[in-house]
Design a protein around this nucleic acid. Structure first.
Length: 282
DNA sequence: CAACCCACCTGACTGC
DNA sequence: TGCAGTCAGGTGGGTT
């Protein structure tokens, strides 16, 4: 569900409302998410701490907490397919736990809730020193919106790989945070089919694909992400995104291509849909 | 190492 | 209205 733009939108909500705030308590309703939630550390160690910074690596949110003069911890949060982080103003009475609300952080003025019906998401904790070696972070490719993601890097990384480009983009080893929606959209803009083998990508195609990946992601962040259906993604304040109305191919199989009116096709790869225009994309 | 398949889990939607 | 089948924004483990 949440790809980089959705995670970035949530990150900004958290930054806006929770930075420098002190944590009063943390409660865990259930721990059996994708990885077992460290209940004891969250409930016993974290209260009294201050959220110093919130950063994003790919689709992973990393909260930096100051627990004491020399004690710091990093909280890694992944939203999986259906996860949400919702911020509410604190009322006199704590609200009843929602269905699928698994963790709740109570700050001085706000509540932060981690809600995840499918439980593919995770909440983990580690020390700052071990952050770069953490399982959720250590194998991630470059940030797509950063300077390291260049046509030269993409071209070099496509050599010797036969997997299709859509998969190369979403699997995170080369570039981190691009999911199925934005991979399909960027490939459409670049005129390259999602099922094209990576090692068949030409240098001049890499040159246009990389800026399109960046543009699609930046536009989606500006639009607050994509909300695909009711009950779908919302930002920290519960607001839907609207980039779904700008999708050219994703989820539009059978509908006309916005550029040439040809019917958008859908194929399956890695058990997931890939969408393209057979006329505009080669 | 790379490619591929599958499982994890719940809910929304489609078609009969 | 119900019920079965299909699909979903992600990712890591196992197998070939």
């Amino acid at each position: 569900m949440p790809e980089l733009p959705e995670v970035e939108t949530v990150r900004r909500s958290i930054e806006k409302f929770l930075l420098e705030q002190s944590l009063e308590k943390c409660e865990c309703k259930r721990h059996d998410l994708r990885y077992s939630i460290p209940v004891k550390a969250l409930e016993d160690e974290l209260p009294g701490a201050t959220l110093d910074a919130i950063e994003r690596r790919g689709k992973v949110l990393i909260g930096h907490w100051q627990l004491g003069p020399r004690k710091r911890r990093c909280l890694l949060m992944h939203l999986g397919m259906s996860g949400r982080l919702i911020i509410q103003e604190r009322e006199k009475k704590p609200p009843v736990w929602q269905k699928h609300e698994h963790v709740r952080w109570t700050f001085t003025d706000h509540l932060l809730s981690f809600i995840d019906p499918r439980r593919f998401g995770s909440v983990e904790i580690c020390t700052p020193g071990k952050l770069s070696k953490h399982d959720r972070v250590k194998n991630l490719g470059v940030e797509p919106l950063g300077d390291e993601f260049t046509p030269a890097l993409l071209f070099e990384q496509t050599r010797g790989r036969s997997q299709c480009l859509r998969d190369l983009l979403i699997l995170g080893k080369v570039v981190a945070g691009v999911g199925n929606i934005y991979a399909n959209e960027a490939l459409f803009r670049a005129g390259v089919r999602p099922q094209r083998r990576s090692n068949k990508l030409k240098k001049r195609e890499a040159k246009v694909l990389v800026p399109h990946v960046k543009d699609v992601l930046n536009e989606a962040v500006e639009a607050g992400g994509s909300t695909l259906s009711s009950g779908g993604y919302v930002d920290g304040e519960g607001k839907s995104g609207w980039f779904q109305f700008s999708h050219a191919v994703y989820g539009r199989d059978g509908q006309p291509c916005p550029s040439c009116q040809t019917k958008i096709k859908r194929v399956r790869a890695l058990k997931r849909g890939a969408f393209y225009c057979s006329k505009c994309q080669k």
